[in-house]
């Protein structure tokens, strides 16, 4: 059996989430990687555990339509096709599955065997073990559940592929990236997140950033904080945002709705700071502190 992994490049490097997907794929046998766009060929070829990199320089924007069409032509050579459960993976792989009339399996957290997988359902309130009868298995991988392969040590061969014919029905217009010097949320060792309790955007920045700076942490947000404009959307942690599992997760001024817990309850140590002793976040927190975060957070900054 051979697996194919659709990988993503960011700032010239292979994203950690893609390296986790390669680690998952190695459970099925040899692993090839599909790389889109004109950057990252060298980084991809040194990935540990990759046999061959299929490189499509002409597909620069990873649009779902041509990418799924290309993957469909490659599918007969593979037993498993994987990607990270990133916005790109979730956009493209189900489309491929639609072309092949295969039932894709989203957000896999554990591989039991070549056709049996475990995935969370109902916002992580249950774990379903599912078995696929499809001849090619199409999986997206929850990156926090698989240790990524190393960036170096591999020596994959490189094969350049042409882009598939473009049907012209979808066109890339623009990408607006938010700039951040902090570690990527999904891979940060420490995450500090804020909710509605921070009251406005300036408090959100002024109270959380000094702690994040001291701990080298990424900053996350609850949906309420994002909807109130305290933080941009890509900082949202939860069922509909990012799923994180850092060493330390500090939740401040957020109640801990089930949709938020779905995104962080696999963190190793959870700290909750909230004024309401009944807030559900205290039920999952290893260390809780009941009190006013406008006093506690500056004191915490000082104590660190």
């Amino acid at each position: 059996m051979t697996a194919l992994v659709l990988i993503e490049i960011e700032n010239g490097k292979v994203r950690q989430a893609s390296r986790s997907a390669i680690a998952a794929a190695s459970r099925f046998g040899e692993v090839d990687a599909l790389l889109l766009g004109d950057a990252g060929a060298e980084a991809a070829s040194t990935l540990a555990g990759v046999r061959k990199v299929l490189h499509v320089p002409a597909l620069t924007h990873a649009l779902a339509e041509p990418t799924a069409a290309l993957l469909a032509t490659l599918a007969p050579s593979y037993s498993h096709i994987l990607a990270a459960s990133s916005s790109s993976g979730k956009n493209i792989l189900p489309r491929l599955a639609g072309l092949l009339d295969v039932q894709p399996i989203s957000d896999v957290v554990k591989i039991e065997d070549e056709s049996t997988f475990i995935r969370p359902i109902y916002a992580g309130n249950a774990l379903a073990t599912v078995q696929s009868s499809d001849s090619v298995k199409i999986l997206t991988i929850r990156s926090s559940s698989f240790d990524p392969v190393a960036e170096t040590g591999g020596n994959a061969s490189l094969e350049v592929l042409d882009a598939p014919a473009d049907d012209g029905k979808s066109r890339f217009v623009k990408l607006e990236q938010s700039q951040s010097d902090r570690p990527e949320l999904e891979v940060a060792r420490v995450v500090i997140s804020g909710g509605k309790g921070l009251k406005d955007a300036s408090n959100f920045h002024n109270l959380l950033e000094p702690i994040a700076d001291k701990l080298g942490a990424a900053i996350g947000a609850s949906r309420a904080a994002v909807d109130s404009g305290f933080a941009p959307n890509e900082m949202q942690v939860g069922q509909t945002g990012k799923v994180v599992a850092p060493e330390l997760y500090i939740a401040t001024g957020l109640s801990g709705a089930i949709q938020h817990l779905a995104g962080m309850k696999d963190s190793r140590v959870i700290v909750a700071i909230n004024i309401d002793p009944e807030a559900p976040i205290f039920k999952v927190a290893d260390y809780g502190m009941v009190g006013d975060l406008f006093e506690i957070l500056p004191a915490l900054t000082k104590a660190l």
Binding site: E10, L63, S86, S87, S88, S170, R171, F172, V173, K174, L175, E176, Q177, S178, N233, E234
Partner: peptide, 8 residues
């Protein structure tokens, strides 16, 4: 999308 917004 991860890291921002994309327009198509």
């Amino acid at each position: 999308v991860d890291g921002g917004t994309e327009t198509l």
